[in-house]
Simulated assay, not measured.
Amino acid sequence: MPLVNTGDLVSAAAAEGRGIAAFNVITLEHAEAIAAGAETAGAPAILQISENAVTFHGGTLSAIAAATAAVARASSAPLSLHLDHVVTGALLRAAADEGFSSVMYDASRLAHGRNIEATEDAVRWAHERGLWIEAELGKVGGKEGEAPLDAHAPGVRTDPEEAAAYVTATGVDALAVAVGSSHAMTQRTATLDHTLIAALREAVPVPLVLHGSSGVPDEEIRAAVAAGMVKINVGTALNTAFTGAVRAFLDADAKTVDPRKYLAPAREAMSATVAGFLGLL
């Protein structure tokens, strides 16, 4: 089916009091697995490509974007295309021409005032082109190249009053908040601050986004959605499933050289992971 607008998927989920999952695409197999998992679950999903993934593909967005969009259009599930954790203006400006309906513009590493200015400029540019835009306030942490961060350390988590002012000043359509999760977790041991989530939901007039959901246990995700979280980002869990399946295959058959032999079970493992998260939500 045609690509769906990310904003429509998130708005529908928010109106119905449920979550919508967004899964990170690195390879073609990731995109295929997400589409297959969504079809299995009978649920919509967001396919998102991060700036780190674009860098992995030689710094060129067009090829991985075109492949991901083609997979999404061939699927029977409602799927959208989202550009994730964009930090450079050039990549932001490429979004509108590559089939994306939404962008997460990440100025969270900047000083607060500069974050507001840069995000406001990004929002103005995006809205003029009909793009839905997400931003981040607080320190989720865990991204490659960042120093280790305690997700519950003082000053890390998002302040509700500050978040409300930030949304008003920037005009963003959704806000990623720091409530106890962290990027790149391979064990599901994160403990979220559900009281803070509820306070943020009360203070902030746009949907809330949970980054680093791969490290969050099922019951914590359910409680987060019940408290007001809407968009649930999942990346590392797919990579864990992918790598685990490849490692298991090659451990059992060290002579195989045809990558299709081990990429097929890797894709199936990711698809099952996607269906699991969608069923949870």
Rank of each mutant, 00 (worst) to 15 (best):
H85Q: 08
H85S: 13
H85N: 03
H85Y: 08
H85E: 05
V86K: 01
V86N: 11
V86T: 10
V87E: 09
V87C: 12
V87T: 15
V87G: 12
T88Y: 01
A90L: 05
A90P: 05
A90V: 05
L91I: 05
L91C: 08
L91W: 04
R93A: 11
R93E: 10
R93V: 00
R93M: 09
A94L: 10
A94H: 14
A94C: 11
A94K: 14
A94P: 04
A94I: 00
A95M: 02
A95G: 05
A96W: 06
A96I: 08
A96F: 10
D97R: 14
D97K: 15
D97H: 15
D97Y: 01
E98Y: 05
E98I: 00
E98T: 00
G99D: 02
G99H: 02
G99W: 09
F100E: 00
F100L: 01
F100N: 02
S101Y: 01
S101G: 12
S102V: 03
S102G: 06
S102Q: 05
V103E: 00
V103D: 01
V103T: 02
V103S: 00
M104S: 10
M104C: 10
Y105S: 04
Y105L: 09
Y105E: 01
D106H: 02
S108Y: 04
L110Y: 08
L110A: 07
L110Q: 15
A111R: 10
A111S: 12
A111I: 05
H112Q: 14
H112L: 09
H112E: 14
G113L: 03
G113E: 13
R114D: 11
R114F: 02
R114M: 06
N115F: 01
N115K: 09
N115I: 05
N115R: 15
N115T: 07
E117I: 09
E117S: 12
E117Q: 09
E117C: 04
E117Y: 13
A118E: 06
A118C: 09
E120F: 14
D121C: 11
D121Y: 14
D121S: 11
D121G: 08
